[in-house]
Simulated scan of single mutants.
Amino acid sequence: MTALQKTAENHHHCVLITGATGAIGGALARAYAAPNTQLILHGRQQDKLEALAEICRHQGAKVTLSNINLTDDHALKAWLDELCTNQVPDIVIANAGKNTHPQGADMLEPWGEVQALLDLNLKTPIAMAQHLVPAMQNRGSGQLVFISSLAAWHGLPTTPSYSASKAGIKAYGEGLRGLLAPHGIGVTVVMPGYVTSPMCDAMPGPKPWEWPPERAAKAIKRGIAANRSRISFPFPLNFGTWWLAVLPAGVSQWLIQRLGFNHHGETPHD
Rank of each mutant, 00 (worst) to 15 (best):
E9S: 15
K62P: 00
H101Q: 13
N69K: 11
L41H: 04
T124I: 05
L118I: 15
H263K: 11
V246Y: 00
Q115P: 00
P35Q: 05
F233I: 05
G240Q: 07
Y194E: 03
G240S: 11
M199Q: 07
Q115H: 09
S165Y: 07
K218A: 15
P198Y: 03
A249F: 02
H11K: 12
Q115L: 11
H269V: 13
A151F: 09
K6Q: 07
G104N: 12
E174V: 15
G19C: 08
A216W: 00
D72V: 07
T100N: 04
A51T: 10
A171K: 14
H263D: 10
N121F: 00
S141K: 09
A8F: 00
W79I: 01
R258D: 00
P198S: 06
T71Q: 11
T196R: 05
G104V: 09
V189I: 10
R177C: 00
C14Y: 05
N95Q: 10
P35N: 09
T18R: 06
G112T: 12
F235D: 11
P157A: 11
G112Y: 06
A23M: 06
A202S: 09
V88G: 10
K6E: 01
S229K: 15
P160I: 10
L28P: 04
A8Q: 13
N36D: 12
I55P: 03
A61K: 09
L117H: 06
T18F: 11
I40R: 15
D72N: 14
I147C: 02
M128W: 04
S197I: 10
N227Y: 04
G97I: 03
